[in-house]
Amino acid sequence: MRHDSPLMLPIAKVTQENSSVKTFWFDFALQSHPGQFVMLWIPGVDQKPFSIAYDDGRRFGLSIFAVGPHSKKLFDHAVGERVGVTGPYGNPFSVQKNRHYITVAGGYGAGPLGFLAERLEETCSTVDFCIGARTSDLLLFEKLAKKLSHVTVHVATDDGSRGHHGYVTDIVRELLEKKNKQKKDTILSACGPELMEKAVLNLANEFNVDCDISIERYMKCGVGICGQCCVDDSGIRLCTEGPVVNRKTANTIVEFGKYHRDKTGKKIDY
């Protein structure tokens, strides 16, 4: 069920994921799917979309990096304080049986991919969990993924402080080149900076494998009304037909990796 009127939920717990990301937990059965998002309202401040990082059916968690005034304000909130939650919204990652997933996370884009890896546990699918970050202290969900028996973790950092020294997409290319050893059909699932995502889409096209990508655009309403997140040229709304789109749809988004629109609607180049 989608909640469009704000649920005023108390923060049940706050946990630290890495040097800058905290997870805010809420004891509420949101019944969401990996890749979906909620709108988080801090009364008097703002309301922004956040992808769901955990949902075990009884409680859910949002893993947040304090980038702007809204998330910084959230970091000042104590356990027990209430915030407004609406959702869950949007099209999720596909959770398929007997596939081989290569998940590709960049920076705090890892948000929904740990959740996806957990959901894949019951599907007889296997996962190469690739995570990249600028430095080792910014890696997300490495420990969580390592605990899962169907998952193999691969790490890349820009500065070489951990794992492969370079882009996470270098690892993905290597895995795809080895794919003939696997019997299952491969699917790429990506979430992270847009230029990384574009590189993943290019790899999916080159190796002719399925691909789900979570694409971020400025959102206001989250419910498909305001038109803020419509993309060129198809005009699909990334809050509703996205944020996760498949390879075919991603290939129709001509602005992908090129430009996006700010809150006025003005185009901004990447």
């Binding site: 009304i225 305001c226 060129d232 040229d233 005009g235 609607g265």
Partner: peptide, 15 residues
């Protein structure tokens, strides 16, 4: 005021 921000968004409404 509804979906009318971009040319592509409006095109989809016609479709």
């Amino acid at each position: 005021g509804i979906l009318g921000l971009t040319g592509a968004g409006m095109y989809r409404v016609i479709e």
